[in-house]
Design a protein around this nucleic acid. Structure first.
Lengths: 213, 213, 213, 213
DNA sequence: GCCTAACCGAGACGGTACGTCCGGTCTTTTT
DNA sequence: AAAAAGACCGGACGTACCGTCTCGGTTAGGC
């Protein structure tokens, strides 16, 4: 996700004169947004509170973001930048073990935190197509990318056939996890994830499950 | 879903005198709510607009629902009452044909309409546990129930093993469809649905796909 | 000045239904305006402060007045309604004694209070033609009217010629008093007023001053 | 009016090094102030607009004047420097002719321009004693001084008695003219001015009007 | 001729008031 | 007493302005 896809951001001036926009204010404001958002939720979050928390004037906020939803959107994207890059899918030599390694307790914890953010994302602007892209890019696609890589390796090893639908397969677990967390309101814990691996993903991939679990 | 579980509804008067509450206004207001909701989304939907659309006064609305979220909630529940009961899963003697029959074009069209409303629901579901339940009950469970019944019949016919996770299997397609529609923003069309059947559901269920498609 | 000449007032609704506008709020808001105005001046008076002082919402204020200047304008007019009608020019049988009777200490005190209001009036919108009319109607014209009546009686008594310019003569003292108060910043006290009578008004009217003062 | 009495002016630097302040910018900024002031009035005049009109930066303005009111104040004073010295009261040998000579059409035109600015001044004068002094010095006293000189000469010629109140008499016409222009909103034209001469000033001065006009 | 410091235009900055809009309550008239 | 209509209070939104500060660039001295 490069900056060219960023939406809702006020564009920089083109003229040369004048004081330069202080880019460090961006992060301050986005952090303040996330703080206030976490404390009172989207509806009760006010732009005044965000500006005050960031020791900024409202004009400084509105010079960079056109509206409240766009600020919040960018705040989520900002959080994504912190956490999106740490995924390094494990490579154990077996698809099943790769998957199980991905669902080690500490790793799950972080994913759950990200999912709780997704709730905030969805709460603001389902009407807005943009929010869907952000949700996807920040919260779902990193998972899918990791799964895709593990499946690719499994195919290369001859562990499974190569005629599978990679897009569908790699999004299987993220989709079911999102459904469980957001709609069913249940937690996405390790047993659930491992169940999906053995009962859905591996069968659909044509990989025989181990004799005994 | 009986009325005793309804939340946010103002209770009827106990006294005997005076004009009786006109119960036909409920449906008008709920319909108006759904209309406005579909047009502008939850955030930009105003109670004034709903009341005006229903040719009702705001007091009439607030006499029946305590707040905006509760009105919207009940509107979704109202929609569910219209559409939740019409699913009669087809019975063709084969799981694959049952599923393909379910995804006939006219049936899909109606499901997509429902999905567009689900977007509005989801924007609230993430904040409110109860809304999540409603979303599930209205938009997802009817599908899941139909799938469950078809899978049950397939098991009874000996078409597939009985050691599958029914909960997981029956929610596979609704979850992926919701993900595709809400997060990816793509349409849930017939090819996609049939792909899910052949590439995910049937393999995961242990049913061999047909030799040729 | 009847209400038809009132400017800047939001007009009443025409439809029949709905809650009636509470006319008692007008006076509350205007009184609050005058209070805040007296405490901090026009520039530092805020609409929020006025609304809070009147225990009103901002919408209630803006439903009745379009803007801050128009509210302040009407507040001055409101004050005028309280004080404009008490002028009953004295009738002693002599123009000079009439004038001296008008400038009894207690009467002067009230006029000075009104002049201090005129300062506020002028401070807001000299650009606005409307404010000039209000200033004139509330603060100046009542004097001029009284003088005009006294001069009329003097002419009727044969005390002076009838070929004078009444408009000019009746505004002589108000003009000089306003100049002294607003531009010179000096107080309009009894000696100054009596000086104007004997040294300007009576000579210009062609009435001989008394032999000794 | 020397510079020592100037208020609100930022003082020059004391250090020796560095670029010298460009004094020609002062006049540009003051002229721009007067232009904007004349177009939109004090309230709607913005410092940005003034700076832009003068092709100056806001810092350049604020380096020289502490605040908006002080800039406007100095702008009026600036205008006074242009026009205050050109009054050379005519000397015809008769008070009446002196006065009529003063009100030649071209002279009146310039006075009316000054009056239109006086409106802006008055809107501040009422709040600030110092502005009142400036208003007086710039807009009123030049007239009064000229009248005083003409009356002095008339007394010296024996044309009128010497027991008049010079202060009052010399400010008679400026006061009434200001009242007419600012409060009544009428134009101060030649007939009005000549009327004041014949019907107020000359009678009050004890000078007999000419037999026929 | 070069260095330094203050100047310049331009405009971002913090703060605050403006006028609009909305949620939820209350009042008036009509049914 | 419920209905439609809409005024009411409170408060958030997004805009505009004031006075300050910062930016890159220019223009005086002093060496």
């Amino acid at each position: 996700m490069d900056d060219s896809s960023v939406v809702g951001r006020g564009s920089r001036r083109v003229g040369r004169g004048g004081r330069q926009r202080d880019d460090t204010r961006d992060a301050d404001i986005l952090d303040a947004t996330l703080e206030v958002l976490a404390e009172v939720g989207y509806e009760r979050m006010t732009m005044n509170a965000v500006a005050a928390r960031a020791h900024a004037g409202k004009a400084t906020v509105y010079r960079r973001w056109e509206s409240k939803p766009q600020l919040v959107l960018d705040a989520f994207r900002h959080m994504g930048r912190h956490t999106a890059k740490i995924e390094q899918p494990p490579d154990t030599g077996s698809l099943r073990e790769d998957l199980r390694a991905m669902f080690k307790p500490d790793s799950i914890e972080e994913k759950q935190r990200k999912l709780s953010v997704t709730k905030g994302l969805l709460s603001m602007a389902s009407q807005d197509l943009e929010v869907a892209e952000i949700t996807n890019a920040v919260c779902i696609e990193p998972w899918a990318t990791a799964f895709r890589e593990m499946i690719d390796r499994a195919i290369a090893r001859g562990e499974m056939a190569d005629d599978v639908d990679l897009n569908m397969l790699s999004r299987l677990i993220p989709s079911l996890a999102a459904y469980r967390a957001l709609v069913e309101g249940k937690s996405v814990d390790r047993p659930f994830l491992l169940d999906m691996v053995d009962k859905l993903l591996l069968p659909a991939a044509g990989v025989a499950p181990p004799a005994s679990d």
